[in-house]
Simulated scan of single mutants.
Amino acid sequence: MAMKGDGPMVVGLMWSMAVLCVFFTALRTYTRTVVVKSFGADDIVFIVACLMFIMYTIFLTISASIGFGQNMWEIPEADIPPTVLYSAIGQTFSIFGMAIAKWSLGLFLLRLVCTRMHKVAIWLPLILCFLTSVLCAAFFWFGCTPIEAVWNRAIPGSHCNVLPRVPMYYVYGSTLVFTDFYFALFPWLFIWKLHMKRREKIVILCSMSLGVFAAAFGILRCSQISALTSPNFLKAAVRVILFAAAEQCVTMICIGIPVCRPLYRQYLNRQASHGSSNSNKVDGTHQSVALRSTAGAETRSKGTTWDESTIRESRVPRAGEPAQHMSTSGAGLYADRNRSEGEYFTRERSRSFNTMIDSEQGIIKAAREFDVGSAMT
């Protein structure tokens, strides 16, 4: 059956967003497997979220091919139940897909934090998203009796007041919006404290705060929830469907941009290497990692290059111990053996040992995940 009404628009927009999701999924997968060689659980979850979006799009396409996007009275009565059923299945993939996308961001943030308090602060909204998504799906499918009434209201004796579905939709939507804002602001609490170059911190934090755009689409979707109970559901729900799809798509794009940063840096470094003989080539085994020394000073002396394993074995010296000064140039991390020991303790004496260790670990994690390659100031 040919698509009519808003059906072609819905299908066209959703497949366009699906292509964007697949594109960023491919970029992220390549970055984490080839560039930084750090493919993890958050990447698997991101791929699952992409698959969820594709399934959402497929079922909405099937629904639109029958009658979704048209007024109820324009569709043959026999076509209404399957149209609603396929759209309901698609919305179920959307319910879980959006929550899974938030999980991908949360699991990525867990890679960067060091303290237990920060980890708990990340797990709480993730658990909240999981619980509300399960409840929303349950209220959606079991809010009518019999269950067939979800997609066929013409069944004699059916009614859909078993569970307060609309309030649950608002709770679910509000939870996702809160999570978007939460994860957009949370990185500022720990990344800003790292002894990284200010420009690097601002670039990383702004890219990780793009979730506010996903929250904006979430607010728009919540404003249209009442359409889900409209007698003219197949036409009235078009905006809800599109805003839900846009929210998940923008969420995945916003998650993909900061994670793909090492790929962008690799490309820029390669372009710069053609214009200057002194430019440093990107190396697959020794990534450019920039750390601030414990003294707060930098050098560019020639020495032994440090790779990630060397960094992991390094530690901040205790008070009274001789310290090894560390710094970076474009090529990597070097040990400075020419500085006097008196320069090593100008700033860090006032910090506790645990705070210094946490900061060092945070810099190492940020350097590994974001390919921070410039000197710290």
Results as ranks from 00 to 15, higher is better:
P125E: 03
A236W: 10
G40N: 13
M9E: 01
M252K: 08
L263F: 07
P322T: 11
T25H: 09
W123M: 11
Q91L: 03
C21T: 07
A184F: 05
V150H: 09
A375Q: 10
P156R: 07
L176Y: 00
A18K: 02
I75S: 01
V34Y: 02
T179Y: 01
F370C: 12
T377C: 07
P231D: 02
M208F: 13
N278S: 10
I54A: 10
G256T: 15
Y170S: 08
A375I: 11
K302N: 14
A366V: 15
I363Q: 13
Q248E: 13
D6K: 08
H118P: 00
E247T: 06
T132R: 06
V177E: 03
G143D: 02
F345P: 03
Q91E: 01
A297L: 13
C114L: 04
I44L: 15
S329E: 10
F370I: 14
W188V: 12
N71R: 09
I95H: 06
A272C: 01
A216Q: 02
Q324E: 14
T305D: 09
G97E: 03
Y56S: 00
L124E: 01
P262W: 08
A149I: 11
S293N: 04
P156Y: 04
A245F: 09
D6G: 02
A331I: 08
S314T: 07
L27K: 11
M52A: 13
N354H: 09
T285L: 05
I54C: 11
L13M: 14
D307L: 11
W123F: 10
T83C: 12
S277M: 05
F178A: 12
A366N: 09
K102F: 13
G342M: 09
D180K: 00
F39T: 14
G69F: 03
C21D: 15
R339Y: 11
F39C: 13
Q248V: 12
I100W: 09
Y267M: 04
F68S: 10
E348R: 04
F213A: 06
R32I: 14
G303A: 04
A295D: 14
C254G: 01
G97R: 08
R349N: 13
S133M: 05
L60C: 07
G5P: 01
S359M: 11
A323Q: 08
E148C: 03
V177A: 08
P262S: 12
S223G: 03
T304R: 15
G296M: 05
I357K: 07
A295N: 08
P76Y: 14
T29Q: 06
G342T: 12
E308Q: 06
V45I: 15
Q91R: 02
M376H: 01
S38C: 12
I100E: 05
E308A: 07
S273Q: 10
E308T: 00
R349S: 13
S223H: 01
T229I: 12
I62E: 03
I202M: 04
S174I: 13
E313W: 07
I127V: 15
A323V: 09
N152R: 02
V162Y: 01
T61Q: 11
Y334E: 14
W103Q: 07
F233Y: 13
V19T: 09
Y56A: 00
T328S: 15
S16A: 15
K119G: 03
R32P: 08
A101V: 05
